[in-house]
Every structure is written in structure tokens, then in C-alpha cells.
Design a protein around this nucleic acid. Structure first.
Length: 211
DNA sequence: GTGTGGATTATCT
DNA sequence: GATAATCCACACC
């Protein structure tokens, strides 16, 4: 399986969010492999994007990985109890990233389940950004990890080089971001059961594209 | 099946 | 001191 390299990540966040669909996210913990197929992403475009943590070139220790070289993991805590996984996009010094919102579990399902005892079905292991972080044991300790070099967190090309049908919608939970809240920067595989239940704050503008 | 509200804390102003 | 790129339990159809 081909591992994704820096050149893959060195594209604008929107393109990268589109292209990460269908790829395989791999987490190795205590020598045991867990993986999942990415089925939902969101693009955070950087300085101009009011929904991004780096709006207005904000630069604090927390968001530093977004400024780092493409493929760097940016993991933050939200609502005091949830973690979300992103990968830095574009180029070093330009703070954009792609949020991984949902995965379909592939390898190590039982290991993931042991980290999320409340998950009744395999689908509940990855159908939400905070859920997949819990299942894969990702927290701020992994923020800043270079996914192109790390042996604990990386991505593979996946079976499906060119996913079937990609749909887009507004992003989730960014209602405060004005016009940026309505832009179709959330991408998911249409009809895929593992997509998260989170609904965009602006309804009715889900568009479909050909894959 | 669908909708609503509460949990709980890092981070920045 | 306010706010948040969320999830889950529990009501109530």
C-alpha cells in the first residue's frame, strides 16, 4: 500500500479535502494497527476563512501545526472534552488544514471498540470527528506529528484511487463565521453510511458533484 | 425515529 | 470571563 507523501499534502486545502476521501487513515498503537477509510472531510482555508482557527493570521502555540509543513497533524480539543484531527495543507507558513470528520473502520475494529465501549455498532466508531479521535486514541500529544514520517499516524493511498460520488455542503458548527459558514467546504462520499450525523447550520444547499 | 439540552475545559481576550 | 470545527442521553412522538 502506497503511503501518502509530502507532495500529496502540498495542495490547497479544498483540493486536498476532496482528494483525501477514500484514502486510508492509519494509527499504530503499541504495535497494533488500526485503520479506516476517510469518508468525510472539511477544508479550512486559512487567514481569510473566518471559520478557521487561523483567521486573520492568528498564530498561537495551539495552531502552530497549521503553519507547519504539509501533512502535519493538528489536533485540538473542543467543548472541553472532544478532540478533532486535522492535517496541514498547502505550504509551510500558510495556515490551512483539512479536518477529518468521519472514517469507515477497516483494520483493528476490536481495538477501536475497546476505546469506545459505548459504541454499539462498528459504524459508531468513526462517524464523527471526536468519535474517531477517541477510537484511535488521538489527543494533543499527537498534535504536530508529521504524518509523512511518523510510524504511529499516517495515511495510505487506499483501494479507491478515485471515489465514486462526492457531495459537498456547508461546514458543521461554524454558524458564527458569516458568509464563510455557507461555503460548500465540507465533502463526503454520497450514500456512505459512515458519514457523520452533524448537519450544516445552513440547510438546503447540499450540492452533488460527479466523482 | 426525531429533537433537544447538558456536559466540561483549553484557549484566547 | 466567554466561547467553542461535538456527542450522547433522554424525552417525546
Amino acid at each position: 500500500m502506497t503511503r501518502l507523501d509530502p507532495a500529496f499534502f502540498a495542495r490547497d486545502a479544498e483540493t486536498l479535502a476532496h482528494d483525501l476521501l477514500g484514502r486510508t487513515l492509519v494509527r499504530v498503537l503499541d504495535g497494533q494497527r488500526m485503520s479506516g477509510r476517510i469518508v468525510e472531510t472539511e477544508a479550512y482555508l486559512g487567514p481569510d476563512d473566518l471559520a478557521a482557527h487561523t483567521a486573520g493570521w492568528l498564530r498561537t502555540p495551539r495552531v502552530e501545526p497549521m503553519y507547519a509543513k504539509p501533512g502535519t497533524a493538528y489536533i485540538y480539543m473542543t467543548y472541553g472534552m472532544h478532540h478533532c484531527l486535522n492535517f496541514s495543507a498547502d505550504r509551510e507558513g500558510f495556515p490551512s488544514a483539512v479536518l477529518i470528520r468521519a472514517i469507515a473502520p477497516v483494520d483493528g475494529v476490536e481495538i477501536m471498540r475497546s476505546h469506545r465501549p459505548n459504541a454499539k455498532r462498528p459504524i459508531d466508531l468513526g462517524n464523527g470527528p471526536a468519535k474517531l479521535c477517541e477510537a484511535l486514541v488521538l489527543d494533543r500529544a499527537q498534535s504536530g506529528v508529521d504524518a509523512c514520517r511518523s510510524s504511529e499516524l499516517f495515511l495510505e493511498a487506499g483501494d479507491e484511487a478515485c471515489p465514486r460520488k462526492i457531495a459537498s455542503s456547508a461546514r458543521v458548527g461554524v454558524a458564527y463565521a458569516g458568509v464563510w459558514a455557507t461555503k460548500p467546504l465540507r465533502f463526503f462520499l454520497d450514500g456512505e453510511a459512515h458519514v457523520s450525523k452533524g448537519r450544516p447550520t445552513t440547510s438546503g444547499d447540499v450540492r452533488k458533484r460527479l466523482g
